[in-house]
Amino acid sequence: MNATVSILAEIPEELHESLQGYLETHPDWDQDRVFSAALSLFLLQNGTSENPNSALSYRRAARVYLDTLFKHAV
């Protein structure tokens, strides 16, 4: 079972406009998918896998990132 959590975040208007432009030209993506991909990529780039707990978190972030990128519209 994949659980989800809602997040309310404020972003700069310029970023929001860029996101809207991207979503208009990529109908197979939605805001939730973009944020999931972006956040998981950030965690992969800035995380470590030096100890068992962080290694597990790193693998989970990697799984979310790959699942998000290769998700196919139904």
Rank of each mutant, 00 (worst) to 15 (best):
N53H: 09
E14R: 13
S49R: 12
G47C: 04
S6D: 06
F35D: 02
L69C: 13
L19T: 00
P27S: 06
E24I: 03
S57V: 06
S6C: 10
D32E: 11
S49H: 11
L19G: 01
V74M: 14
L15M: 10
T25A: 10
Q45T: 05
Y58W: 09
A9L: 11
A37R: 11
L15S: 10
F35E: 00
T25S: 15
I7L: 07
I11F: 02
V34M: 02
F70K: 04
N46S: 08
A62L: 11
A73T: 10
T4E: 08
V5I: 11
A61E: 11
L41C: 07
E17N: 09
L39V: 15
A38T: 08
Y22L: 03
Q20I: 08
E14L: 07
D28W: 13
I11A: 02
S40E: 02
A38E: 08
D67M: 07
F70A: 05
I11Q: 01
P27F: 05
T4Y: 11
R59L: 14
Q45D: 13
H16V: 00
P12N: 10
L19Q: 01
R33V: 05
L15C: 12
E14P: 03
H16Y: 10
R59P: 05
H72K: 11
A55Y: 03
L41F: 15
E10G: 12
R59K: 13
E50P: 09
T48I: 01
P12E: 03
N53G: 03
L69K: 15
A55V: 00
H16D: 11
S18W: 05
H26W: 00
L44Y: 03
N53V: 08
F35T: 01
L39M: 12
T25E: 14
V64F: 05
N53C: 12
L15V: 11
E14H: 08
E14K: 06
V5F: 02
L66S: 10
S36T: 15
M1K: 12
R60V: 12
V64Q: 05
Q45S: 14
S6I: 03
L41D: 09
L43K: 14
I11C: 10
L39F: 13
T25V: 12
E17M: 06
A61D: 10
L43Q: 14
L44K: 01
N46G: 06
